[in-house]
């Protein structure tokens, strides 16, 4: 168990594993996303309440889930790196931030595109969308803090600490936004998601989840290689890695 842990902490090992895994992740992601899109857009029946507009959930819900999953990954990787002084953790955290931010943006845009036909407006200060927006701000803060330092090692550690503080705050922010919304929103707003799900609707959605996770894995592998290389420029193994 611990030897495996130590192996994962070694940059050349991580570099090799990431390079080897990337094509597999990408291939399976293409299959899963392809099936999910075709199944969701073509074969799933329209929802009895929302009609064909519900098909937006096939891209919205997976990206919203990914935005939170990637933030958690980033905070956990940062915590591991800070506590056990494992540099690869910083590389994972640094590679995660832009991916997570882009998924958050996707969730926001698709959420508001769904809101227009359902609420009659692009932005209704729905609690989930508002939390998602604040999550985007948190991502931007972490990314700006990382790049603000001249010494990259310092930026890594500062960004990791901020990611942890943000992770502790995310549930608080979410519940306070829900409370605020229940106080101020008199009109009943239809909630996104949760249409009466039946098999032909559900399977493509699950497939999109899996596909987004795998795609995230592929992009993370690519970025992680870059982050590791940037941190290990002086090491001997880099020569072999580049020439191969």
């Amino acid at each position: 168990m611990w030897t495996w842990f130590y192996k994962l902490a070694s940059p050349p090992y991580v570099y090799g594993v990431a390079a080897a895994l990337m094509p597999w992740f990408l291939g399976f992601a293409a299959i899963a996303i392809g099936y999910g899109l075709i199944g969701g857009l073509v074969f799933a029946p329209p929802d009895y309440q929302q009609g064909d507009a519900f098909r937006i959930i096939y891209v919205h819900v997976p990206s919203a889930w990914m935005s939170e999953f990637v933030y958690t990954t980033m905070a956990v990787a940062g915590a591991i790196a800070l506590i056990w002084r494992i540099k690869v953790g910083f590389a994972v955290a640094g590679a995660s931030a832009p991916i997570g931010a882009s998924f958050t943006l996707l969730a926001l845009v698709t959420g508001s595109m769904w809101g227009k036909p359902m609420w009659g407006t692009y932005w209704a200060w729905d609690p989930r969308l508002t939390s998602e927006l604040i999550l985007l701000f948190l991502y931007v803060g972490v990314m700006s803090l990382r790049s603000a330092f001249e010494d990259p090692a310092r930026g890594d550690r500062a960004a990791a600490l901020l990611a942890i503080v943000g992770a502790v705050n995310i549930p608080i922010i979410h519940y306070s936004v829900v409370w605020w919304n229940s106080l101020h929103q008199a009109a009943t707003v239809a909630k996104l998601g949760k249409p009466s799900i039946e098999g032909s609707m559900l399977w493509p959605l699950l497939s999109m989840f899996v596909g987004f996770m795998l795609f995230h894995g592929a992009v993370l592998c690519l970025r992680l290689q870059g982050e590791v290389l940037n941190r290990e420029r002086q090491s001997a193994w880099v020569r072999e890695a580049i020439n191969s």
Binding site: L41, A53, R55, V109, T110, M113, P117
Partner: peptide
């Protein structure tokens, strides 16, 4: 898309 094309396809 049952009239929702201008929302679904951009998404």
């Amino acid at each position: 898309m049952g009239g929702y094309a201008r929302y679904v396809w951009p998404c």
